[in-house]
Computed example of a mutant assay.
Amino acid sequence: MSENRFLAGIVSSTSESHSALEDAQGIIAGSMLACLGVMVLKAGGLLTGGTAGLAFLLTYATALDFGLAFFIVNLPFYYFAWKRLGLKFTLKTFVAVALTSVLTAVVPDFISIGETDPLVGALFGGVLVGAALLILFRHSASLGGFGILALYLQDRFGWKAGYVQLMLDGCVLLLSFFVATPFIIACSVAGAVVINLVLAINHRRDRYIAM
């Protein structure tokens, strides 16, 4: 009987909650799309905001692989995720970040993306990353980043999360001038706008309540 209940917990879902199997599928699918988005952005020599932007900066400034850089820069943010959003969200996010890091290191050996126009790469890469985040958000996960820290600081000190996020992304943008041209940075900003448009238009909790 207990075994049946255990199996039911893995595969059963409701209109308001995903099953463990559905969460696993969502995290894997989101990580795969994120990997492809990163590959397209990298093929265009582009950057982006958040911890992914920091990882790109480290990749362009050093010989460090993006996957490893992305995993490392996200490590400090798990504490804030646990304090603000709970253990379940933190664990799912850790898995999503780790899987995305591994995929971005391994998949280029099997899928090759050639020379890419920066603006086109920004648009297509932005859509892919935005779709990846959309899937992960709907399964109570994320790809880490400044948003978690911004929410924590808002709770802890009353600082507006939006302003904190803007300030941190602005710092990444300023650092970008050391490794990229103004045109590449402009295209990168366009890609970031696309990512946020995908999320803003498609991610509404009153339309999609399952978590």
Rank of each mutant, 00 (worst) to 15 (best):
Y163N: 15
L54A: 00
R5H: 13
T59Y: 13
I113E: 12
H18T: 00
T14G: 01
K83Y: 13
A52C: 09
S19A: 01
A24V: 09
M32L: 14
P108V: 06
V172R: 13
L99G: 00
V40F: 14
I10H: 01
S188F: 03
G45R: 07
C171T: 15
V97N: 05
F124H: 03
G158K: 00
I111Y: 10
L119K: 03
R204M: 09
G126V: 02
F6A: 11
S140D: 12
V129G: 13
S188Y: 11
R84G: 02
V164P: 01
T14I: 01
A180M: 05
F177V: 08
I184E: 08
M1V: 12
V194C: 04
D109S: 12
Q154T: 06
F56W: 02
L128Y: 09
N196R: 02
P76M: 04
A61L: 09
A132W: 07
S188I: 00
E115Y: 12
G53F: 00
A61D: 06
Q25V: 15
L75C: 05
T14N: 06
P76F: 05
A192R: 09
G191P: 15
G49Y: 07
F157T: 13
A24D: 02
D65R: 06
G67C: 08
L7I: 01
G67D: 11
L87A: 10
S12T: 04
L168Q: 12
V106P: 14
S176K: 06
R5Q: 10
A98R: 02
L143R: 08
G37D: 09
S13K: 04
G45I: 00
L36Q: 10
V97C: 07
Y79F: 14
R5F: 10
G125C: 02
